[in-house]
Amino acid sequence: MGSKIKSEHLYWLGRYTERVLISVRLLMDMYDQMIDGDPIDYQGFCTRMGIDNIYTDAADFCRRYLFDADDPDSIYCAMRFAYDNAIVLREVLTSEGLSYIQLALTAIEHAAESSSPLVELQVVIDNINAFRGSCYEHIDESSRNIIRCGSSVERIDIMIRTRYHLNRLSDEVSMLLNRLYKTRLEPDQECLNSLVDAVLDSRKPEASDEQLLVWVENLFPL
């Protein structure tokens, strides 16, 4: 029996878990690049992601962007925010479903202490994916689709910002529409129509990244 407040928590749970997943993958790619001594453009990454560049160098970025509990833009904080949204949804997610979010949070805390954090981060990814799987088992369709709408919005946002799998943007927008119709969420219709036209209708003029991001960020006035 959902409420507006629970819908907001479900939506942001979807967004934050997706943010963790994609950011970890992006970070893993950057780490890999560093192994061969290649420079990484972390300043550019910060600009594209819209986060403050508070980092002193690439190594500082890799460590703090991953694990700094005092940096609200860090992946650790995104995981923490996912947990904060999940913990108030126990009776919706079930204790079983919620436990995967708890495990993911514990895993990222362990990863921060580990001498091989990338290996440990795989456990974070595994648990978030297990959570998603558990959603099919335990959660009603409407709640599940609200989480998935959150995931889609976050993925679209990061695709536009970082060009990550940008070729799949139209698929992702279609997926968002499909999920949205299965919920009672009330999107900002103007933003939704503009986004859909710009991404899915080849007859309409292309929109700038900045314009696309404005529509994405204002899709749900939550």
Binding site: M1, S3, I5, R90, E91
Partner: peptide
């Protein structure tokens, strides 16, 4: 609170709800 709501099949609510 949240565990008993889940186990009794009740709705967990705050004042805003």
């Amino acid at each position: 609170h949240s565990y008993l709501a889940e186990r009794t099949d009740s709705v967990l609510a705050e004042s805003r709800d």
